[in-house]
Design a protein around this nucleic acid. Structure first.
Lengths: 354, 354
DNA sequence: TTGAAAGCGCTAACAA
DNA sequence: TTGTTAGCGCTTTCAA
C-alpha cells in the first residue's frame, strides 16, 4: 500500500522535468534516438528520469500513431487440450522473445466465431496472426486480407496463406505400424482388428487416413476392408458413441486402433468410464497427439507429438515477407507407451519450495 | 481473393458518405446514440452504411480517448495443465459474454516475470485483471495499484486484493479420507503408509497439508508421524526425484498418497516411466487437481476439481465495486477414479464431421 | 543535435 | 436533434 494510485507519467511529464522537447523524449524512450542523433548525455538523463518516474509507454497511443501495435495473435480452436495449451505456452515465449505481446484466443471450431474473434483482434490492430487448427482458415484469411494483417496457418492448412503443418501422412504411418507391430506381438491380427476413430473431413484427417490405409495394405495386402474408419468429428461425446456402437456390435473394442486426436481420445475415456476392463482388455492404441497422462493408461498407447516449437519458428520466419501459400510439413515424433516427455513446464524456474 | 486490401473505414469516411458529423457517427456506432437523442432514422442510415463499408471501430483509438480499452487480463502461471487451460477457456467465454476481449498471459511462476507480464498488459490499458495462481500476488497487486487497474486473485490468495480460492482445507479432507478409505479396503493401513508429495510454502499447500493431517489424525489418532510430507515445489522433475528417493529407501511407493497438483502428478508419471508395475502395484492416489486422463491410470486415482466457473463468476462480480481484500472460498468437487467429466469442450458445436 | 506541429481514430463537452 | 472542437499519448516529418 506504499504508493498511491498516481496518473501514469507521459512523455510530456518527462519533457517538463528534463527540459527536453516531447519529441526528443519520445525518441529516447522508443529507441530511435541514436539514428535521430540525440546526444548520449540527453538520452541518459531522460532514461534516468523515466526510470525514476516509473514511466512506461502507453502502447495504445503508440499503436494508434504508428499503426504497429506490437501485438501478435494466435487463434486456437480450444485451449483445453495438451496440444493446444502447450502451443499457447510456446507461442507466448516465442512472441516475447521477439519483443511482441501475444494475444491468444479460441474460435471453438465455429467458422463464424473464428472470424468474429479474429475481427476482435484486428480491432486492436494486431500486427500478425497465427491461425492454428482453424475449421475455416480461408474465411479467416479473408478477414485478415481486408485488414492487411499478415498471417500463417499452423497445423491445418489453408489455400491462400502459407501453412505449416505436421506431416500427417508420415506420422499416421509411423503410428499405424507401431500399433500393428505391437498388437501382432500379442497374437495373430486380422485386418478388421485394426480401426480408426475420430477426425472429420479436413486436410489432416484425410492424410492420416491415407497413411493408415497405406500401412494396413502393406501389411495385410490389398483386400483390406474400407469400412474400418469411424468419422466422429472433434467431439468427445460423438467419439464415445462410436466406441459404444462398435462395442454393441462386437462385444469388445477392436484389438488395435488409431484415435485421431486427443479430443477423440477423451471419447475413449468416457467409454472406459462406463465399462470395465473386459471391454478393452488387451487393446493397443495409437493417438495422433501427445498427452503425458494418456501415455500411461492401462494399455499400450503410442502417441504422435507434433513439433510445435519448430512449426511456430517457421511461422514467425514466414510472416516477414508476404510468402506464397505453400504448405510446409514438419515431421512429428512417435512417442512410445509410458513416456513422460519434458515440456514447457520444465523450462520454468520454480522458486525454492521452502 | 475477391476483395483487395483496402484501408479500414473510419467514422470520417462514414461521416462523408452519410452527411452526418463525425460525432453523430461515433455516437451511433458506439451505442450511445439513444441518450444523445439522435433520430432513429439517422442512426439506421449510418448503421446500414457502416455495414456496407464493413466498418469496425479502431479499439486502440477508442481506448486511448475513453481510457477504457475493453480488455481484461488473466495472468496464469502456465497454460500447459488441464486446470489452467480450462480456466483460460472458461475465462475467454465469460469475458466475451460481458463484451470484453480477454488477454491471457503466463507469468511462469517467476515473481519478476509476473510483474513484467502484467506491465505489458497495463501498457495496453487493460481495464481489469484476474491473477490466477500467482507466485507473488502482492507484487502484482503493487503494479496494478499504481496503474489503477482493478484486480482479483483466483486460486491463490493475496493480502491486498479480494481473493477467490478453492476451499483447500476441505478439499484436502475429502481427498484424504477418500484415498484412505479405499486403501483400507485393500488391507490394514498404518499411518506411515499415507504420504503427501508436492506443493510449496504457499497458502494452498499449507491448507492442504492441514486437511491431510487432520484426517490422518482422526483416523490413526494423535501419534501420526509428521515426516509424511515431501515438499517439492511445482516442478515435475523435483517431484519425480522425491518419488525416487522414497523408492530407494522403501523399495516401493507408499500404498496411499496425496499429490498436491497435476504438475506434481506429472512427476509421478516420470517415475512410472522408469519403473515397472512392481514399484507401484496396488497404490491408491489422490490428486488435488483434475485431469481426465489422469483419472484412468492403472491404479485408483481420486481427484479434486476446483470450481473454476464459479470462481471466475465471483471474480467478475467483485471487480465492479472496489472490494475489500477478503478471501472467498469455493467448494471444490471430489472426482472418483475412472471418471471422464464433461468440460468446456462439450459446449462447442462441432461442425458435422462429413 | 533538437523542437514545433500535425495528426493516428475516436469520444465528450459544449454550442447551436 | 446535431455539429464543432479539443485532445487522449504518441510518432514523425520538417525546420531550425
Amino acid at each position: 500500500m506504499s504508493e498511491k494510485e498516481q496518473k501514469k507519467a507521459t512523455i510530456y511529464d518527462l519533457s517538463v522535468v528534463s527540459g527536453a522537447s516531447p519529441s526528443t523524449v519520445s525518441a529516447v524512450l522508443n529507441g530511435t534516438w541514436r539514428k535521430r542523433r540525440i546526444s548520449e548525455e540527453t538520452a541518459d538523463k531522460i532514461m534516468t528520469l523515466a526510470k525514476a518516474h516509473r514511466y512506461t509507454a502507453n502502447l495504445q497511443a503508440r499503436g494508434l500513431r504508428s499503426s504497429r501495435s506490437g501485438l501478435t495473435g494466435l487463434l486456437l480452436p480450444v485451449y483445453d487440450t495438451r496440444f493446444f495449451s502447450s502451443m499457447a505456452q510456446t507461442f507466448e515465449a516465442k512472441a516475447r522473445q521477439r519483443g511482441l505481446v501475444p494475444m491468444v484466443v479460441s474460435g471453438r471450431r465455429d467458422p463464424e466465431e473464428e472470424r468474429q474473434t479474429v475481427e476482435s483482434l484486428i480491432a486492436y490492430s494486431i500486427d500478425s496472426l497465427f491461425v492454428a487448427g482453424a475449421t475455416d482458415p480461408d474465411g479467416v484469411h479473408q478477414v485478415c486480407l481486408r485488414a492487411g494483417v499478415p498471417h500463417v496457418n499452423i497445423d491445418l492448412p489453408g489455400k491462400y496463406a502459407p501453412s505449416i503443418i505436421s506431416d500427417n501422412r508420415q506420422g499416421a504411418e509411423m503410428l499405424t505400424s507401431a500399433i500393428i507391430r505391437h498388437a501382432e506381438g500379442m497374437g495373430p491380427l486380422a485386418p478388421e482388428d485394426v480401426c480408426l476413430f475420430g477426425g472429420r473431413d479436413d486436410h489432416a484427417s484425410r492424410d492420416r487416413v491415407l497413411g493408415f490405409h497405406a500401412v494396413k495394405q502393406s501389411i495385410f495386402g490389398d483386400d483390406v476392408p474400407k469400412d474400418d474408419i469411424e468419422t466422429t468429428g472433434y467431439s468427445p461425446g460423438m467419439t464415445a458413441l462410436a466406441f459404444e456402437r462398435f462395442y454393441e456390435k462386437h462385444g469388445r473394442l477392436p484389438r488395435c486402433f488409431f484415435v485421431n486426436s486427443s479430443i477423440n481420445f477423451e471419447g475413449l475415456l468416457r467409454f472406459m468410464g462406463r465399462h470395465d476392463g473386459e471391454a478393452f482388455g488387451d487393446i493397443v492404441v495409437g493417438c495422433f497427439d501427445y498427452d503425458p497422462f494418456g501415455s500411461f493408461l492401462p494399455f499400450p498407447v503410442y502417441m504422435i507429438k507434433p513439433n510445435v516449437s519448430e512449426m511456430l519458428d517457421r511461422g514467425f520466419d514466414l510472416l516477414g515477407e508476404d510468402a506464397l501459400p505453400e504448405i510446409i510439413m514438419i515431421e512429428p515424433q512417435l512417442v512410445l507407451p509410458r513416456t513422460a516427455l519434458e515440456g514447457p513446464l520444465d523450462a520454468i524456474k520454480d522458486p525454492t519450495p521452502a
